[in-house]
């Protein structure tokens, strides 16, 4: 009853759109009934004036009844149309026109002109000489410092510990109320190549600052849906000390390349395949999903995977040139919320 009342009253905009189709729907139905059976068993409902909508019926029971009937009628028509189309396709056989491609968010996306062409000499040079070049040329090996915001609580502390088991050669330090700008020179003098800071709000980790040392860049992410190892169902046993493989999915734009290189430089050059562990950064609609798995080749075709955790989602908020300096630093990219113009490239 409550539902029918709801649908009957409806939203203002819905009613407006329904009005037209409703006006003739019950009338058609009655005509069909008269023609099909031949015997007028039911009293013919009075023809409604054009522009009449079911929601104007004042009797609730009657309104509900009419609405249900209208809904059935709609469904019948839809199924019939589908059936007809299918028949037509079968009749045409091979000559049938190709099925229309369904609209998805992915294929409706506006084309980004910054998508990197692998043959592009200029971008290739730009990447070959950027701040991560020494890592990819195997001149440095990563050494990572993980710290938190001040006074981390249980979840954040455990998250840091689990993150340090994912990233080899990473060290978790207590922040001790130190300013990031004071930590960074000390990190550089101790040959750390990256700094990860986990920020928390009300015991929930909600931010991640990833800074490449010694010359930057610094990326600031919003972090959400953190699931610790304990909270994951059907998880595998504790990860081993082997350095994992890294999978970077969909980091195709110029900005994506910079971020992808940043993630790749967190992990050692040569993965130890014997560990069968893989860390995945999957980018979908500008959200980066992190998962950590162990895989097993069951047969030549089948692969089994086991999640080891933790898992979390990142969204880039800004990419800054140089090491962390939120006041005077130059930003390469800042996420801007535009309501009318959703284009921040």
């Amino acid at each position: 009853m409550a539902r029918s009342g709801e649908t009957g009253v409806g939203g203002e905009d819905r009613r407006g759109t329904k009005r037209k189709s409703l006006a003739d729907a019950p009338r058609e139905d009655s005509e069909d009934g008269a023609a099909g059976s031949g015997a007028p068993e039911q009293p013919r409902p009075a023809a409604f004036p054009p522009g009449f909508s079911i929601s104007e019926i004042k009797n609730k029971q009657r309104r509900h009844f009419m609405f249900v009937r209208w809904k059935q009628q709609q469904r019948k028509e839809k199924l019939a149309a589908k059936k007809k189309l299918k028949k037509e396709r079968e009749a045409l056989g091979d000559k049938a026109p190709p099925k229309p491609v369904p609209k998805t968010i992915e294929n409706q996306r506006v084309y980004d002109e910054t998508i990197v062409d692998p043959n592009d000499e200029e971008v290739a040079y730009d990447e070959a000489t950027d701040e991560f070049a020494s890592h990819f040329n195997r001149q440095t090996s990563p050494k990572i410092l993980i710290t938190t915001s001040d006074r981390p609580r249980g979840r954040t502390v455990r998250f840091c510990e689990q993150l340090s088991t994912v990233i080899p050669n990473s060290h978790v330090y207590y922040r001790r109320g130190l300013a990031l700008k004071r930590i960074i020179p000390q990190c550089i003098s101790r040959d750390f190549t990256d700094l990860i800071v986990i920020n928390e709000d009300r015991k929930i980790p909600n931010g991640l600052v990833l800074s490449h040392l010694p010359h930057g860049p610094t990326a600031h992410f919003r972090m959400s849906s953190v699931r610790l190892r304990k909270e994951i169902k059907r998880k595998g046993k504790e990860p081993t000390q082997h350095s994992p493989e890294v999978i970077l999915n969909n980091f195709t734009t110029r900005l994506g390349h910079s971020i992808g290189r940043m993630f790749a430089s967190l992990f050692p050059h040569d993965p130890q395949f014997i560990g069968r562990q893989v860390a995945t950064f999957h980018n979908q609609r500008d959200y980066i999903f992190f998962r950590f798995h162990r895989y097993l080749f069951k047969s030549e075709k089948k692969v089994g995977i086991q999640e080891l955790g933790p898992r979390f989602t990142l969204k880039l908020r800004s990419l800054q040139k140089g090491t962390f300096d939120s006041k005077y630093g130059e930003y390469e990219w800042v996420h801007k919320v535009c309501i009318r113009m959703s284009d921040t490239s």
Binding site: K321, Y331, E332, W333, C338, D343
Partner: peptide, 10 residues
């Protein structure tokens, strides 16, 4: 006087 929009970085 006015602001101009559209830029993403410095």
């Amino acid at each position: 006087v006015c602001c101009l929009k559209g830029l993403a970085g410095s």
